[in-house]
């Protein structure tokens, strides 16, 4: 555990402070994030919107510990991940974070069940059988467990990716345009499922989306532009009345 700052003590599971990220391509510096500040509360469903290339995915990868920032601090569940060694960031990803990718990134050569078991094995989730079964039922995957990912529809693949992300009950789920390649009906179903996960398990979700209908499922929408958070004072949008306890 790194710090127990004021931001963390008020229930923020993610705190991003003055984070910049500059990609070096040869001798050219390409800034992706320019001093980002963001807080995400435990149990919050946050949507990040913005045009392509504005740095949304970079921000998600930084929070997920897949990248390290050029400057600034990122706290995830109390850990300053900018100071963690590679091994510790791996541990953090394993224990605290679940990823949902736009392309789902399932292993095509193995069945749905094996995909989930592999994640369970990596996350060393020994006692989560009941929880996983619950999630499998909730996501309607029971009938698809023995199928290989390419034998099921895109929406079903996404549901498998969601199930895999929640294995081990991570503190936060990071979803990168999860409904980007789905039709509106399938998107709606999946977003309902994400919302249910958020409600039932108080699961923090940070979701990148281009789609304002998808973003409307979140408690709050943050808009990004040119590597910065746009108009952050207007960032608090509450989709659900009963969750308006979040104040920023």
């Amino acid at each position: 555990m790194d710090i127990n700052s004021r931001e963390l003590s008020v229930g923020n599971i993610v705190v991003v402070k003055n984070v910049t990220k500059i990609y070096k391509v040869g001798k050219v510096d390409t800034p992706a994030l320019r001093g980002i500040n963001l807080k995400v509360k435990k149990g919050e469903f946050l949507a990040i919107m913005g045009p392509s290339g504005c740095g949304k995915t970079t921000l998600l990868h930084l929070v997920g510990g897949l990248l390290t920032p050029t400057s600034g601090k990122i706290y995830v569940d109390g850990y300053d991940i900018t100071r963690l060694k590679d091994r510790d960031r791996t541990n953090l990803r394993r224990e605290k974070i679940g990823f949902i990718f736009q392309r789902y990134n399932l292993f095509p050569g193995i069945s749905v069940r094996q995909n989930l078991e592999l994640a369970k094995h990596i996350k060393k989730d020994e006692d989560g059988e009941g929880f996983l079964e619950d999630v499998i039922n909730m996501l309607g995957l029971r009938e698809k467990l023995e199928h290989k990912p390419l034998e099921i529809s895109g929406g079903e693949q996404l549901r498998v990716a969601i199930a895999r992300a929640v294995i081990g009950k991570p503190s936060i789920i990071l979803a990168d345009e999860p409904t980007g390649s789905l039709d509106s009906h399938s998107s709606q179903i999946v977003l309902e499922m994400l919302r249910n996960l958020n409600l039932k398990y108080n699961q923090t979700i940070v979701m990148i989306t281009h789609n304002s209908d998808a973003a409307a499922y979140a408690h709050r929408i943050v808009k990004m532009k040119d590597g910065q958070i746009e108009d952050k004072d207007k960032g608090a949008i509450y989709s659900f009345e009963h969750q308006s306890l979040f104040t920023f």
């Binding site: 541990n91 953090l92 990803r93 394993r94 224990e95 990823f99 990134n105 292993f107 990596i122």
Partner: peptide, 16 residues
């Protein structure tokens, strides 16, 4: 390569 990236995102260690 991609598969290894997925494993890493799931939290697979270098040893794994």
């Amino acid at each position: 390569t991609r598969e290894i990236g997925i494993l890493k995102s799931l939290g697979a260690s270098n040893f794994y």
